[in-house]
């Protein structure tokens, strides 16, 4: 248990090196070893989506990954999306539409939204709802989240059609 494995990776465009126990979860590694506590742990069995990060651009559950699986990877966490002074457009859309209340599930939603905006057509609310259904929010009832994503999709498609 004490034998550690060396990993090198990039998180939010910064290089990191670490020695980790092979059993350490990626979520615990980010939070406890690197103090990137914006990634939240909600269930540790891959259902709630609060711990979603981007691994080489793809949304994944960091509670279902081991830290050693991040070796050589490009990782993005919510801390890399925007700062409190300069938020990313996804973040400002969530603020405009009041798409968060307690904020605990929010980082996972933001990571998922980043991914689905890149990969899915999201032609209507049903598609948006299906795409978001892997993340649980217990506060908002989803209505405001769907509206925020709908506005982001509209912006995306307007730019794409120009």
């Amino acid at each position: 248990m004490s034998s550690k494995t060396h990993i090198t990776l990039t998180i939010n465009d910064e290089p990191y090196r670490a020695d980790v126990e092979p059993r350490m979860l990626a979520a615990d590694f980010l939070r406890d070893e690197l103090a990137l506590t914006g990634t939240h742990i909600g269930c540790e069995h891959g259902v709630c989506g609060a711990c979603t990060i981007l691994l080489n651009g793809v949304s994944v559950r960091s509670c279902l990954l081991l830290a050693i699986q991040l070796d050589d990877a490009e990782v993005q966490t919510v801390e890399g999306l925007g700062s409190t002074r300069e938020m990313h457009r996804i973040q400002t859309a969530f603020r405009e539409y009041h798409a968060l209340q307690c904020g605990f599930c929010t980082p996972g939603f933001l990571m998922t939204v980043q991914d689905i905006l890149n990969t899915l057509p999201l032609r209507n609310d049903k598609e948006i709802r299906d795409a978001l259904s892997g993340n649980i929010c217990r506060c908002t009832g989803y209505d405001h989240i769907v509206k925020a994503v709908r506005s982001l999709v509209t912006e995306r498609d307007k730019i794409a059609n120009q």
Partner: peptide, 23 residues
């Protein structure tokens, strides 16, 4: 007025502090 929330900027950027975050 439907003003935007003052707590949102920290919660949206992963800078909120929940009990499990304290070290």
């Amino acid at each position: 007025k439907s003003i935007q929330r003052l707590e949102d900027s920290r919660l949206l950027t992963g800078r909120g502090r929940y009990a499990a975050d304290f070290q």
